[in-house]
Design a protein around this nucleic acid. Structure first.
Length: 265
DNA sequence: CCGCCAGCCTGAAGGC
DNA sequence: TGCCTTCAGGCTGGCG
């Protein structure tokens, strides 16, 4: 579910709410979602800021320990006032002095880690989309020996961190590149187009609080609004907004890809 | 090292 | 109504 814009929208909404809250206790209702650490170690600590790296969140405390979160497919973080009831599918609840931070996750694929500030739950993440380190030169070197299509490369978190299945299709439509094009064969000008579209689509999506298809909610319970601005994702047979050609769906690496066969040659 | 694919889970939706 | 299949925003581990 949540890709970079959704995770960033959660971060922006949640940070001012949880900052300064004291952790009373943590209830882990689905034990396998906790990968590392002991929740009891966070008791008495205060939340400070929230960082994001790719699709990972790190909720910092006034100690060295942090709460690291990955929402996977159907997770979200919700805020509840002390007198408010828990939502359905509340898998992990952080009871705070001023309210509750709830990890809601229908499919229970999400994970948390309780570990030091410098702990990284990811194996390897590529550059951030908005970092100046993301250049055509960087992509060229990363993709030179890859036989995969560009759509699959955009999903590879060790290339660029944060792009998921919705935005990979939207980005390639925006820059008019066919998702089946070999990643290694793209010229630097084409790579620069991809970089520009990546930044444009992701920042627009953040501006609209992300995309809600099914499970995603902002921390205040509301839906993301970028859903209304999707141009190809889940638009099978819908006329292309540029040329009226029906949007096509193909499967790449076991995931759906949507594109316009005319605009994306 | 690279690419492929099953597996992890639950619930909604569609076909019969 | 109910049963079965398919599909879903992500990532890991094992295999060739």
């Amino acid at each position: 579910m949540p890709e970079l814009p959704e995770v960033e929208s959660i971060r922006l909404g949640l940070e001012p709410v949880v900052k300064g809250c004291r952790i009373e206790r943590i209830s882990v209702n689905v034990p396998r979602m906790l990968i590392k650490g002991d929740p009891a170690d966070l008791t008495g600590k205060y939340f400070t800021t929230i960082d994001r790296r790719g699709k990972y969140l790190q909720i910092m405390t006034d100690s060295d320990l942090s709460l690291h979160v990955h929402l996977r497919m159907s997770g979200t973080l919700l805020w509840r006032e002390p007198d408010e009831e828990l939502p359905d599918f509340a898998r992990i609840i952080v009871y705070l002095d001023k309210g509750k931070l709830v990890f809601r996750d229908v499919r229970t694929l999400g994970n948390i880690w309780i570990a030091g500030r410098n702990f990284t739950p990811w194996r390897k993440l590529g550059v951030e989309p908005f970092s100046e380190d993301l250049t055509a030169e960087y992509l060229k070197n990363k993709l030179i020996k890859r036989s995969i299509p560009i759509k699959v490369a955009l999903l590879d978190q060790s290339v660029i961190a944060g792009i998921g299945n919705i935005y990979a299709s939207e980005i390639l439509f925006d820059c008019g590149i066919n998702p089946r094009k070999a990643a290694s064969g793209l010229s630097k000008p084409k790579l620069n187009l991809i970089i520009a579209s990546t930044r444009k689509i992701l920042s627009d999506a953040i501006h609209h609080n992300g995309t809600t298809l099914k499970d995603f909610r902002l921390s205040n319970g509301r839906d993301g609004n970028f859903t209304d601005f999707l141009r190809v994702y889940r638009k099978l047979d819908v006329p292309c907004c540029n040329c009226n050609t029906p949007i096509k769906r193909i499967v790449q690496s076991q995931r759906s890809t949507y594109f316009c066969p005319v605009c994306q040659k």
